[in-house]
């Protein structure tokens, strides 16, 4: 059975996609950029960061493009004053949530959060900073986890569980107290499940996960080709 092809309109442009695809995928294939943060091609989509929310005609609600399947005749708007103001507010909430000090960050200049702020024209943070006292876990021989710079996108959790299969990372606590955690809250360096593959470091959008020894602005991530890994793994296992 072949997957049906559906046609829809995104930002006034007629486009088409497979029925199995999401609004985000089809938009991407057609060069329409929708901001994302928690989404990463090759990992399960969670709809958590809410940056990719779009308007769909006939629906009063906003829909996260990363988990919204396309439908025939759908009319999607990815840019509007309302969406822009929500996206700006969400990025600002992230900056205010933890201690993001771009000037002294290993990922300065190579950071998705920083880029989002710039793309959305954010030149200051309206909300007062929360300034939580958070730890830096430098116990691993090759990598560092700095909770101050974490945006809780859970890419590291998903890449480790879904691709590497180690599930070293998870989230502890909940709400504003949520934090990434290794094993039973053990220092990363003494984790018995970590394979040291470094995928988590390279999918991390900010400077929260980095290679040891990097100085300010030196940490450039090499995104692993996750869709390739997924496909190849399925092929080799056959």
């Amino acid at each position: 059975m072949t997957t049906p092809i559906l046609t829809l309109t995104i930002d006034g442009r007629p486009v088409s996609g497979l029925a199995t695809e999401t609004v985000l995928q089809v938009a991407g294939e057609n060069g329409i950029a929708i901001p994302t943060l928690c989404f990463l091609d090759g990992l399960s989509a969670t709809g958590a960061c809410r940056l990719c929310m779009v308007e769909i005609e006939g629906s009063a609600k906003l829909h996260p493009a990363c988990v919204t399947p396309i439908q025939e005749g759908m009319v999607v708007t990815t840019q509007s004053e309302r969406l822009r103001s929500y996206r700006r507010a969400i990025v600002q909430l992230l900056f205010a949530e933890r201690n993001h000090v771009c000037a002294v960050c290993v990922s300065n200049g190579h950071c998705e959060l920083q880029d989002l702020a710039r793309e959305l024209g954010i030149d200051h943070i309206d909300f007062p900073g929360r300034y939580p006292a958070l730890a830096v876990d430098a116990s691993h021989s090759r990598f560092v986890l700095d909770h101050n710079r974490c945006v809780l996108c859970t890419r590291c959790v998903r890449v480790c569980a879904e691709i590497e299969g180690a599930h070293t990372w998870d989230v502890k606590n909940r709400g504003i107290r949520s934090q990434i955690v290794a094993d039973l809250d053990t220092p990363w360096g003494t984790s018995t499940t970590c394979t040291g593959c470094g995928k988590c470091v390279h999918v991390c959008p900010t400077g929260a996960l980095s290679e040891k020894g990097r100085s300010v602005a030196e940490m450039q991530k090499k995104r692993p080709a996750l869709p390739y890994l997924v496909a190849n793994r399925a092929e080799e296992r056959r």
């Binding site: 569980a161 599930h167 990372w169 998870d170 502890k172 909940r174 290794a182 094993d183 499940t193």
Partner: peptide, 12 residues
């Protein structure tokens, strides 16, 4: 179960 998952549940 992965230990991290257990810890995540306990603290949730």
């Amino acid at each position: 179960l992965p230990p991290a998952k257990v810890f995540g549940v306990v603290t949730f």
